[in-house]
């Protein structure tokens, strides 16, 4: 029982991070129809930026909580700007081009970011400074740490905030309109370019928050971290139904469940990836548009 509760906390922690990353994937896909393979590398750049910001801020103040909030907010703004610039320079000229050329461009952008970081910051692993007080809780037989609670609550807060933003604000309504029917939305006076920029900025900012939380749980990082994150968040987004933000959250937690439960059941933990992808393939064979995805109607 204790073990199960322990693993449940781990599941929620990992699922929160996957969900935040999958949201960025899904949101951009819902608005532009682009599978943004540079998302993982944007996450990686965000991790580096957070690392430098935190180190710099620690030289001014010793309050670790202030450093955490300030570095995350600053990095989210900067990475949002970076995503907007990437969209304007690399993706915007390709409006109306076949979708695959957008995909290839996003692969190239990812390659570019990864190797720029490799060139200027080197291939060595780094360690994120600890920003959360090292407190352990023991409830009955279950041990969990303060950072785990913080990750889950912080992620939940961001998801609720995003939900309110999309449901209540004018921009949020405009985003939903564009994702339903871009042509009709632009006839109603919605600037499509603005909405696309907003989607990229929000996706990247949420990925930065994800990077900040990821750093608490897994502090070691290097320039190759983006690739793995990329495929896992893509998987989570597709599992839930790509383009659907709630689906992305569901997919994130489901993927985390597979990742946490399969090593408990299986004798060899290295078979984890195999199980994760087998589950994914099975889900897609039964529900070809993901769990919450709309079944697209094909018209001739």
């Amino acid at each position: 029982m204790g073990v199960l509760l322990q693993q449940a906390v781990n599941l929620l922690q990992l699922g929160s991070i996957y969900a935040l990353l999958a949201i960025g994937f899904s949101m951009v896909y819902g608005i532009v129809g682009l599978v943004n393979f540079a998302h993982g590398d944007i996450f990686m750049v965000a991790t580096y930026l957070l690392f430098f910001l935190a180190t710099w801020l620690f030289s001014m103040t010793s309050s670790s909580f202030a450093v955490l909030l300030a570095s995350t907010a600053l990095a989210a703004a900067a990475i949002g700007l970076l995503a907007m610039i990437i969209e304007r320079v690399a993706y915007k000229p390709l409006r109306g081009a076949p979708k695959v050329s957008l995909v290839v461009t996003s692969l190239a952008v990812g390659l570019l970011l990864q190797h720029l970081v490799l060139e200027f910051l080197g291939p060595n692993s780094q360690r994120v400074p600890r920003m959360v007080p090292d407190i352990k809780f023991t409830v009955g037989t279950v041990n969990f740490e303060f950072y785990q609670i913080l990750i889950i609550l912080f992620a939940l807060f961001i998801m609720l905030l995003l939900n309110q933003f999309i449901r209540r604000t004018r921009t949020g309504v405009a985003m939903r309109a564009v994702s339903q029917d871009a042509t009709a939305a632009s006839l109603m006076g919605i600037s499509k370019d603005f909405i696309i920029s907003v989607a990229f900025v929000i996706g990247a900012a949420i990925a930065t928050v994800g990077a900040s939380l990821y750093g608490m749980a897994y502090p070691i990082f290097d320039p190759y971290i983006g690739q793995m994150i990329n495929w896992w968040s893509f998987t989570a987004a597709v599992l839930g139904g790509i383009g659907n933000i709630r689906g992305a959250v569901l997919g994130g937690f489901l993927l985390a469940a597979v990742m946490v439960i399969s090593p408990m059941v299986l004798p060899v933990s290295s078979y984890r990836d195999i199980v994760a992808f087998s589950v994914l393939i099975l889900v897609l064979l039964v529900k070809p548009s993901g769990l919450l995805g709309k079944r697209s109607i094909q018209k001739v």
């Binding site: 495929w231 597709v238 060899v268 290295s270 990836d273 195999i274 992808f277 994914l280 393939i281 897609l284």
Partner: peptide, 24 residues
């Protein structure tokens, strides 16, 4: 049965499953 990006991820899954199997 499966189309578009969903099929892309199934084929990706095939590649990664195979890679994992070979590693093990």
């Amino acid at each position: 049965k499966v189309r578009g990006d969903y099929l892309a991820i199934i084929t990706l899954g095939f590649t990664l499953i195979l890679k994992s199997l070979l590693q093990n």
